[in-house]
Each structure stands twice: as C-alpha cells, then as structure tokens.
C-alpha cells in the first residue's frame, strides 16, 4: 500500500509521471481505435471496426439530440465523441493495467530510492488535476460561446447573485464526481490486493473489478452528458 507516485519537478510546476504515462497511453488507444475504424470507410459493406465506431458516434449523437437543438448538436458531436472516448478509456486504464514494481536502482531525478514500490500505470482521471482541467476548460468554453451567441442577454442572468454561486459549483462537482469515483475505486482495488489472504479478498476483488469497469463506463457517459448540458444551457437559442 506504500506505493509511491514519482513526481517530476520543472520550476514551480509538478508533474505526476504515472498520470502523464496514462494520458499518453489513452491518447494512443483512442487514436488507434478511431483511425483503424475510420480507415477504408464503405457505404455498401461496412466492416466490423467501422460498425463499432459508427455505433459509438450514433450513441453520442442521440444523446446530444436529446439535450440540444439540431444545429448545435451536429456542431458539437466531434467534441462529445472525443470527450467520451478519452474519459472512457482513461477510466478503464487503472482497472485493467495496474502494475506495481519495485525499484532495483536509485533514480534521484524522480525522487526514487532503491526498494521503493512504484505503480507506473494508473488512471489519469484518478489524479485530481485531469478532471479539474477538463471541467474548467468546458465551463470556460461554454461561457465564451454564451457571450458570442447571446451578447445582449448573456449578462441578464447575473442580476441574481445566487446564479454566480451555481456557476462556480458546476465545474467543481463536475470534476469531483469523476475524480472521486475513479480514485475510490482504485484505492479499494489496491486495498483488496494488498490486505489479507486471497481466500478472503478474492471474491470481493473480482466483483469490485467488474463494478469498477461498469462505474468507469457510467461516469464517462455522465461526464459527457453533463458537459453537453452545460454547453446547451449557454448556446441554446431560446435563452
């Protein structure tokens, strides 16, 4: 349980190395899946990979059409599919690939000594920075788009000061929801792996791993649907 997380310091910035590895790995997985699925697209006889990608895009498109008007839904579909795929694979990464190793030599540049336990792979979304960055970026984008689409009526909402509190808590809960779910799931997997005998923790571990996969999918869906709702609130024509 005393696994360290190697940090890389660059001036006043601090980088978490497993999170960076996980982010790059997730980007590669998402790119490969969409690239292989979209290569050689055919109208008449679609292949299996093409059908999978089309199914994901159709699923997200249905979701967007429920929350937005038609024109905006077609405009934001690329964004929503990217967000869903990234969060989905980022959530599953820590469940499927959790490798904890022991250092054989000193590595002073990362602050590691011989004999330290290091977990090199974990979900990028289990670090608080990644969901906070995504949620704050989505909120900023929604507000900027709101100012551009409704320059006259945008500031009318803020006559009520309670509205400002609502706008601040939105990105907070949006990010914390994703982070806390994935973080708690990973910690519980770690506890079940390291504590006690496998005879006692084996069955709960298998159940919890299945539940974590399910939670990861649900949270990716919820993150995408909330992002689309927050954007739709600002850019929808009637407001």
């Amino acid at each position: 349980m005393d696994a360290k997380s190697p940090q890389l310091e660059l001036g006043f910035l601090q980088f978490d190395v497993p999170t960076m590895i996980g982010t790059i790995l997730t980007c590669i997985i998402v790119f490969l899946i969409t690239y292989l699925g979209a290569r050689g697209v055919q109208m008449r006889r679609p292949g299996k990979k093409q059908l999978i990608v089309e199914m994901i895009i159709g699923f997200i498109r249905n979701m967007l059409h429920e929350n937005m008007d038609r024109r905006n839904a077609e405009r934001y579909i690329g964004f929503a599919v990217t967000l869903f795929l990234f969060v989905f694979f980022a959530n599953q990464l820590g469940v499927v690939l959790m490798v904890t190793g022991t250092m054989e030599t000193d590595l002073p540049s990362l602050g590691l000594m011989e004999g330290d336990k290091v977990s090199w792979f974990k979900s990028p979304t289990a670090n608080m920075s990644v969901p906070v960055v995504m949620a704050v970026a989505i909120t900023l984008f929604a507000h900027v788009m709101g100012i551009f689409t409704h320059p006259k009526t945008y500031f009318k909402d803020y006559l009520n000061p309670m509205h400002i509190i609502g706008e601040i808590t939105k990105p907070m809960t949006h990010a914390m929801r994703l982070w806390a779910n994935i973080f708690a799931g990973e910690i519980l997997i770690m506890v079940l792996v390291t504590v006690g005998s496998p005879l006692i923790t084996g069955a709960p571990l298998i159940i919890w791993i299945g539940y974590s996969l399910f939670i990861g999918a649900i949270q990716a869906y919820v993150f995408t649907i909330l992002a689309s709702i927050y954007i739709a609130q600002k850019v929808s024509p009637e407001s």
Binding site: M1, D2, T173, M176, R177, W179, A180, N181, F183, A184, I187, T194, I218, Q219, Y221, V222, I225
Partner: peptide, 29 residues
C-alpha cells in the same frame, strides 16, 4: 442508471476526500 450515478456523486466525493485525508494523515498502510 444515470440518476443513480448522479445521486452517488455527493457521497462518493465525501469518500474520495475522506480517503485523501486518511492518506495525508498517514493512517493508511
């Protein structure tokens, strides 16, 4: 299921913050 995920959010935030405080306080492991 979406409703369950939304309801679960607030307790699971409490759990996340609690585990974070436990690790920070050195009670873990």
């Amino acid at each position: 299921l979406l409703g369950i995920a939304l309801v679960e959010a607030v307790p699971i935030i409490a759990v996340g913050v609690g585990i974070f405080l436990l690790i920070q306080g050195g009670y873990f492991g």
